[in-house]
Simulated assay, not measured.
Amino acid sequence: MPIASPSPWRHLPNAISMLRVLLVAPICWLLWQERWPFALLLVAVAGVSDGLDGFLARHYGWQSRLGGILDAVADKLLLIACFVILAWRQHAPVWLAMIVCGRDVIIALGALGWRMLIGLIEPRPSLLSKACTLAQIIYLLMVLLALADWPGLRSTALAWLVAALCVASGVHYVLVWSRRAWQVRHADSLSPPGV
């Protein structure tokens, strides 16, 4: 029985994630220039692409370690850049930008520590982390809708929801990956020599 060849489309989710990385620079420029309608359009495209690449990877079994890393990097670059610029321009609370950035810095340092002390890391975003990313994208869209003079819901409650999800998912990551690290190191210490 012949073995089915891999689909030529299997790299599509990675290409979509790379597109999102490439969108960061023009989005930053548009935000800095306060060209809100165009920035809104590109952030919306980036938000849709975030859901699309994940759906394609899961639905067709096109997941890969590279894809998981690209997806995470694209999300963090885009969200951190948007929050920092909007806070700098006084269109988003500075405290919220600090929480968003602080969470991602902690996660990145944890991933670096895992890589240096234990080995390769497989990105596994939790449901809480996905909810946090979604809330951040919605918040950015609402802010940009308001800045573009469209009917937006620029509510303080949404900012607090984003902050709460950032803190909760950050704490969750630290607890889960600290436990995994302890289990790996403990298992290594119990392994007999040469195993």
Rank of each mutant, 00 (worst) to 15 (best):
M1A: 11
A4Q: 12
S5C: 11
S5E: 13
P6D: 07
S7L: 13
S7G: 08
P8G: 03
R10P: 01
L12W: 05
P13E: 02
P13A: 03
I16A: 01
I16C: 01
M18P: 00
R20W: 05
R20T: 04
R20M: 05
L22C: 15
L22D: 10
L22P: 07
V24I: 05
P26N: 09
L30S: 03
L31E: 00
L31P: 03
E34G: 09
W36L: 08
F38K: 07
F38I: 02
L40P: 04
L41N: 04
L41C: 09
L42I: 03
L42S: 10
V43S: 07
A46C: 11
A46F: 05
S49G: 10
L52A: 10
L56Q: 08
L56M: 13
L56I: 13
A57C: 05
R58G: 07
H59M: 11
Y60W: 12
Y60F: 15
W62R: 02
Q63E: 14
G67V: 05
G68P: 06
I69T: 12
A72K: 09
A72R: 07
V73P: 00
V73L: 09
A74T: 08
D75F: 02
D75I: 02
D75G: 03
L79K: 03
L79F: 08
L86R: 02
A87P: 06
A87R: 04
A87N: 06
A87I: 07
Q90K: 11
A92I: 08
P93C: 06
P93F: 05
W95A: 09
W95I: 05
W95P: 01
M98L: 11
V100E: 01
V100T: 03
R103G: 00
R103L: 02
R103S: 01
D104Y: 01
V105C: 07
I106P: 01
L109T: 01
L112C: 06
G113P: 04
R115L: 14
R115C: 10
M116P: 00
L117G: 11
L117W: 04
I118A: 04
E122S: 12
E122C: 09
P123K: 04
P125G: 01
S129Y: 01
S129V: 01
C132E: 04
C132P: 00
L134A: 15
A135K: 10
I137C: 00
I137R: 00
I138S: 02
Y139Q: 02
L140E: 03
L140M: 05
V143C: 05
A148S: 14
D149V: 09
G152V: 05
L153F: 15
L153S: 15
R154N: 14
S155D: 09
T156Q: 15
L158N: 11
W160T: 07
L161Y: 10
L165P: 04
C166V: 13
A168M: 15
S169T: 10
V171M: 10
H172G: 07
V174G: 06
L175M: 10
W177H: 12
W177A: 02
S178M: 11
R179A: 13
A181D: 07
Q183A: 15
Q183S: 14
D188K: 14
S189F: 12
L190E: 14
P192V: 12
P192Q: 13
P193S: 13
G194C: 14
G194T: 13
